[in-house]
Amino acid sequence: MSDDHVYMSLAEGHDDGDARWAFGTGFEDPLHGISTAVPDAVDRGELAATCLELADDALVTAQRLAEWTTRAPELEEEVALANIGLDFLGQARLLYARCGQVDGSQRGEDAYAYFRDADDFRSVRLAELPNGDFAFSMARLLVFAAWRLAHFEQLATHADPVLAAIAAKGVKEMTYHRQYAAEWVVRLGDGTDKSHRRMQAGLDQVTAHLGELFAAHDARTAVLAVLRQVTEAAGLTLPDVPPTPVGHGREGDHTAHLAPLLAELQSVARAHPEATW
């Protein structure tokens, strides 16, 4: 690989290398050729914090989506959800790599993903909640994708070229995720009486967490516009957004669900911390 290959540049010098990720190495990086230098005008601490938060959101979401494998209503949906999860995992990898480069630690992706405890994660609480039924998961994906898409659209013009490139790539992915979830919300909301009830219940549960999302990044206008359009088409009622957040995952205030999720995610890496494959 040439020195200007961004992913390899980010991984360069990390003690754990890049051999432990299941997808291996040598793939074509979407950030190839982009300078990894941090512009003088960019606050390295703020940049690292942003990358870490977004990476944690993505990693936890990817793990929850992976849990639908063999459990989704149809084989086609299993494949779709697995692919969406891989999109999130790809975002997490790049964001962790950038974080390790700019926060001074030179940690690699494995260190962030596998060797931090729940209290150290800065993901939003919505991402860590159990999947529940399919309606809840689709409501969560719709809200999360709409919120993250609005965030990425702003970050696509960030002064840091690497974060901007990651966000620009993510915009395309999140647009598809939002559309996929919206179609299912309409399909279930406008389906049978049972599917309508379950879709409304899922929407009610997810909306309760909007306050935390808007506190983490205020995309209220964009998110609510999407939700109004989708719920109207689905014949659903959009609940009021609670005036105060239910919690602050960005501050390490998580539900009891995150630790078990991480225990499963991190089990192999912690049992064999020096293993390579």
Rank of each mutant, 00 (worst) to 15 (best):
M1P: 12
L10A: 04
E12R: 14
D15H: 15
D15V: 15
D18H: 07
R20Y: 07
R20Q: 11
R20S: 08
G24A: 07
G24F: 03
T25Y: 09
T25W: 13
F27E: 13
D29A: 05
P30E: 04
L31S: 11
L31I: 00
G33S: 07
G33W: 06
G33P: 09
V38D: 07
D40R: 08
R44K: 12
A48D: 10
C51W: 02
L52H: 03
L52F: 00
L54G: 11
D56R: 11
A58W: 01
T61I: 07
A66N: 07
A66W: 03
E67C: 10
E67V: 01
P73Y: 05
E78Y: 03
A80R: 06
A82K: 01
A82H: 08
G85F: 02
G85T: 05
G85E: 06
D87F: 00
D87H: 05
L89K: 10
L89G: 09
G90S: 09
Q91K: 13
C99L: 01
Q101F: 13
V102L: 00
E109Q: 14
D117G: 05
A118Q: 01
R122L: 13
V124W: 03
L126W: 04
E128M: 08
P130G: 05
P130V: 05
N131A: 11
N131D: 12
S137N: 01
M138K: 01
M138R: 06
A139M: 05
R140Y: 04
L142C: 02
F144G: 00
A150P: 03
Q154I: 09
A156D: 03
A159Y: 00
A159W: 00
A164T: 02
M174W: 11
T175F: 09
H177G: 04
R178M: 12
R178L: 11
Q179N: 12
Y180R: 00
W184V: 06
V186W: 04
G189S: 10
D190M: 07
D193C: 09
D193R: 15
H196D: 03
H196W: 12
R197G: 03
R198W: 10
M199S: 12
A201F: 08
A201K: 15
G202W: 01
G202M: 03
L203M: 13
L203P: 02
T207K: 04
T207D: 10
T207W: 12
L210H: 07
L213V: 11
D218N: 14
A222D: 15
L224D: 15
V226I: 11
L227H: 01
V230L: 08
V230M: 09
L236I: 02
T237D: 14
T237Q: 14
L238S: 08
V241R: 09
V241F: 08
V241T: 14
T244V: 14
D253R: 13
H254K: 14
L262P: 08
E264D: 15
L265Q: 13
A269Y: 06
R270A: 03
H272D: 13
